[in-house]
C-alpha cells in the first residue's frame, strides 16, 4: 500500500486544476478588473472565470496561464462595458473607469467582427485561446508555418481596418 494511485499515474506536466489558478491569481484579477470596470469588477471576474473555464481544456499547454487569465479578464471587461453602453444608449456616458478604457481601445470581439469568419477564428485561436502555432495549425487543418502566416495576414487585415 506504499504506492498511492497518485504516484502510480502521474506522468508529465499538464494543466493544473483550474481552481488552483483561481486561488493563486483571483485577487489580482479582481484588482485588474477594478481598474477596467470599477464597481462592476466582481461581475467581470465571475464572467471571465466562467469564460476561461469553457476554453481551459482546449489550451495547448500549461504555460503563461496567469497572462492568459489577465487577457480573458480584459476582453470580458471590454465586452461587458460595450454591452452596458449599448443598454443605456447614451452617446457620451460619464466616464467611469470601464468606459474610459473601452473608449480608448475597441473590444477585441468588436474589433475583429468585420473580418471574415476564417480570419476571426484564426485571431481567436491565437489571442483568446492563446494557442501555440502548432496547435492553431492542427485546429485549422494546416501546418505550423501556414498557421503563422494565417495569423500574420489576419493581423495585417486588422491593421488595415484600424488605420
Amino acid at each position: 500500500m506504499g504506492v498511492t494511485i497518485e504516484q502510480k499515474t502521474r506522468k508529465k506536466a499538464q494543466l493544473p486544476p483550474f481552481w488552483s489558478l483561481v486561488e493563486a491569481h483571483g485577487s489580482e484579477l479582481l484588482t485588474h478588473a477594478r481598474r477596467l470596470a470599477g464597481d462592476d469588477a466582481e461581475d467581470v471576474v465571475q464572467e471571465a472565470l466562467l469564460k476561461a473555464l469553457r476554453s481551459y481544456p482546449r489550451l495547448a499547454h500549461g504555460e503563461h496561464l496567469r497572462a492568459w487569465l489577465y487577457r480573458v479578464t480584459t476582453t470580458t471587461a471590454f465586452d461587458l462595458g460595450v454591452r452596458a453602453r449599448r443598454a443605456t444608449a447614451l452617446p457620451a456616458p460619464s466616464p467611469g473607469p470601464a468606459q474610459v478604457f473601452a473608449d480608448e481601445v475597441a473590444p477585441f470581439e468588436e474589433l475583429i467582427e468585420p473580418l471574415s469568419p476564417a480570419l476571426k477564428e484564426t485571431l481567436e485561436l491565437r489571442f483568446v485561446e492563446d494557442l501555440r502555432y502548432e496547435e492553431i495549425g492542427r485546429r485549422l487543418g494546416c501546418n505550423e508555418v501556414a498557421a503563422r502566416q494565417r495569423v500574420s495576414s489576419a493581423l495585417r487585415a486588422l491593421r488595415r481596418r484600424m488605420t
Binding site: T9, R10, Q14, L15, P17, F18, W19, Y56, P57
Partner: peptide, 9 residues
C-alpha cells in the same frame, strides 16, 4: 486533473 479533466472547482 490528469485522469478526469482539469476543469476542477
Amino acid at each position: 486533473a490528469l485522469r478526469v479533466g482539469p476543469r476542477i472547482v
